[in-house]
Design a protein around this nucleic acid. Structure first.
Lengths: 267, 267
DNA sequence: CAAATAAGTTTGTGAATAACAAACAGGCCA
DNA sequence: TGGCCTGTTTGTTATTCACAAACTTATTTG
């Protein structure tokens, strides 16, 4: 937003770009990175050599990839979040009761990250879920994201839109600011968010935000499944009730366990 | 080992040290990092500002922590591994059949990383597991690790010992090179590795390595549980058979699905 | 209530260093 | 064998990072 004139380290930015490229490609050589990032081969080589020595990158043959260290880093971040440590068991139970996928999402810089996910007995195959979980989600693409946005003040929603836009994924995706604000208003009235194929066709979901008494938004949970199984009173009554109830239990548990500490804003 | 005289970037090393410290502490301020890493406050501040801009770090109040981006990075690494994509469902089934925890470990730079873990119905509480999963494991501390070491040539085992030592965790931990080589020899004769409280008392496990025809070691799987449940023929016959059988199924599946690509050595 | 403390942030400056080129080494294919 | 790819190494200079010290802001304390 504001042109942050904080002094920033070029070298660290370069390393970050290299790490990002490694995540995208999975397995890349020096030359390809050098071309893609417009850096000299020597520079790329030195960065990779350093990252390797530090254990963030490994070399397989003549190609480089992110190391397993990131698995542990990811778990550290997960376990550091009270929303995860508290919410996990509730999400497990929700998946069990509904027999569908249950999710736990948290927001960061206007994007959604899945902290946890549990598969119910009859849930659909997870190929898709496995894939999508490697990038953050646009908030307007999921029920959890919409539930979160519905809790944000208007100006913050505007900021998110300005930063990330409203990319289209299917013909059902909300792509205008007006339609989104409409949807968020409906969500607030309804008491829960609905997802109906905005990102992939054929799936539906119900999402509810997790907030505390001071209106701090911690994240959201959802239940999602094939549209064929999300119909009638199950879709309109039972699932929404279950999700809302679970969200409420998490909120209470979170309140007692974290008494005091709130997710401070970062501006 | 050999004093690698590859040109290395000081700035990247500093950033790595900061990231490591953030993982250890979870939530730290500038001054504390500055003291711990013996860097000027200004330097730490600039690194954190850059990492924040790049999305690797977030600021909560006056403290910094690793961002949720690492969750996705971790998942990318997981899903990039054929051992994970192929082995996951087998590990699920193993956990279901044995009613205990089942694990999937991979080795990197002489340490063990858990790619996956599934909890069986009657498995013990997971507080401990959740905790330990945030650092890599010493290979001599687990059944999976010992199964992997048993597949390595002697010289490679020596290298691992030289680099990481044989730290003690309980009174049962193997702490001498001789005892370890003995144990690995027994493991090879037995056909599977045994863990009996080397890292935490009261738990036992059986581990088997995953190798291909060319003796490339991909990793190992294990089943672990409370010692009270790991007794008699279940401990001596049934569980080992199940783990060995599962390992074999994974090996075959891996062979057909990756035909050709091997985990190249990185020296 | 002001002084003192301690945190994060900003800035000027010089010595360190990262990046570029261009050369080198090694494998592969024709 | 000779070209044409890689990844790796090296000499060099402008760039840039890190220090130190000042500044800001909030909290604590006599």
């Amino acid at each position: 937003m504001t042109a942050d004139d904080v002094r920033t380290l070029k070298t660290v930015e370069t390393t970050s770009r290299i790490l990002n490229a490694l995540q995208r490609h999975g397995n890349v050589g020096v030359t390809e990175l050098s071309n893609e990032l417009e850096l000299s081969k020597g520079a790329v080589y030195n960065h990779l050599a350093t990252l390797r020595k530090q254990g963030f990158v490994v070399k397989k043959g003549d190609e480089y990839q992110l190391s397993n260290k990131f698995i542990n880093y990811g778990k550290s971040v997960q376990h550091q979040s009270p929303l995860y440590t508290v919410g996990k068991e509730y999400v497990d139970r929700l998946a069990e009761k509904t027999d569908e996928y249950a999710h736990l999402m948290v927001e960061e810089n206007g994007l959604g990250y899945y902290l946890y996910r549990e598969r119910g007995e009859n849930a659909i195959a997870e190929e898709f879920h496995a894939w999508k979980n490697q990038k953050p989600d646009y908030l307007h693409h999921s029920s959890t994201g919409k539930a979160i946005l519905a809790e944000f003040p208007c100006e913050r929603v505007e900021e998110v839109i300005e930063e990330h836009g409203l990319p289209q994924s299917t013909e059902k995706t909300i792509t205008t600011k007006e339609a989104l604000f409409d949807e968020l208003e409906k969500t607030r009235e309804r008491g829960y968010a609905i997802y109906d194929g905005e990102e992939v066709s054929g799936t539906r979901a119900v999402g509810v935000a997790i907030v505390d008494k001071q209106s701090n938004t911690y994240g959201a949970i959802s239940v999602s499944g094939a549209v064929t199984r999300m119909q009638g009173s199950r879709w309109e009554e039972e699932i929404p009730q279950q999700v809302k109830r679970t969200a409420n239990l998490i909120e209470i548990d979170l309140q007692t366990k974290t008494h005091g500490e709130t997710p401070e804003s970062k501006k």
